[in-house]
Design a binder for these strands. Structure first.
Lengths: 214, 214
DNA sequence: CAGCATCCGCTTTGATACTG
DNA sequence: CAGTATCAAAGCGGATGCTG
């Protein structure tokens, strides 16, 4: 991208990460840690393969991404954020927070990946009963389940199946997120195809009070 | 901009503000409040006028900017962020924080505006002596002076001349920022063309301890 | 198969000129 | 002042081909 040629911190940031796809590449690496080219590509449906190669080169030149040759058994190139690249996490978090209300709209052509949703869940849910027993909720959603655990007022969101969850939500992602974020109640979510397995009270442990989603 | 077509909060945010120039338009409105087309343009040197018109239209359509017809004596169109647009402030702040280390480099072709620098100063300085008497420092810099006031541990950064400042820094912006941000000391800044008027102790009141600027 | 590079048509951007 | 009009150049998207 052509530089803005402004002596301004925001403009200089955008000189480095303002290109199309660039911040999404950072999002992928931030979520995945070390990742292969092909995995990154899978997390960015629609990206032209030459563009991804370009962006990775640019990010490497800017010192935000490092490439390492993994020895066998991996035997391939791994891409990883440098500490400076990790520093973009707060930017991504704020962008995500700001964009959450936009997720009430889901276009038919929107691709879905569980690891994208995990970030949204992470910033939105909290343990509403810190004194309660530890519980685990599994979301069976998109391409991979998401496990949400509450324990002593702390929540932990992880990709992959939860071992022996207390409850599970199965169905389309939009009403499941809507239920967790408090924009729809349980009967409403069920009407939209969500099935609850296990203990219904677990939902209330996580569900936020109605967030003002535009 | 073409949509990323991802059901992801970050991608949906970028669908709205990821276009070239868009976030800088928001930066201008965030800093200035209501502004005329010409003023915005002046804060975005190098923007093509048709692009600015496009961006303002897009932002209006997205509900982030409102346009109001001001009655005489202004008698012109004013652009202003909506509350939803103001919500991008944390995103801009984090981008600015992340970009601050990049300002150790200033290209000869970089344009400079005081209101860009004011934001950087605002996130960087703090009152290091909350029990001290109120003091005011003026930066005579770029196109407009910047006033920094400390009082009871609070700092306030405003555009425009300070009334009767206790000290003033005059000279090129890079070493002045470097001095305030702690990447260069006073003799170093003076060697780079900075002149100090008034009480030298005022500088220490604001100057951060050496920030780890890359 | 993973990790690109090349080619080509299309869209977006930049620079300048012009207008109500 | 607040834009629109025009056009060349750059960037992007999609397909395909190459290389270890």
């Amino acid at each position: 991208m052509r530089s803005y040629d402004e002596y301004c911190a925001v403009a200089k940031s955008l000189d480095l990460v303002g290109d199309r796809w660039t911040l999404l590449v950072v999002r992928e690496l931030s979520q995945r840690g070390a990742a292969r080219y092909t995995d990154i590509r899978n997390g960015l449906p629609g990206v032209a393969t030459n563009l991804l190669a370009d962006r990775l080169r640019d990010l490497e030149a800017a010192g935000l991404v490092a490439r390492e040759e993994a020895p066998p058994p991996v035997a391939t190139t791994l891409f990883r954020l440098t500490p400076r690249g990790e520093g973009l996490r707060p930017v991504l978090d704020e962008l995500m927070r700001w964009g959450l209300p936009l997720m009430v709209e889901q276009k038919p052509e929107d691709a879905v990946r569980s690891h994208w949703l995990a970030g949204a869940v992470e910033v939105m849910v909290s343990d509403r009963d810190p004194d309660g027993d530890p519980v685990t909720l599994e979301l069976r959603i998109a391409d991979e389940p998401i496990a949400i655990a509450a324990r002593n007022g702390e929540t932990k969101v992880t990709l992959g199946p939860a071992g022996d969850p207390d409850a599970a939500l199965v169905g389309p992602e939009r009403p499941i997120l809507g239920l967790l974020f408090g924009v729809v109640d349980r009967t409403g979510a069920e009407a939209m195809g969500v099935t609850l397995e296990g203990d219904p009270k677990v939902i209330d442990r996580f569900a936020a009070e109605a967030a003002a989603a535009a």
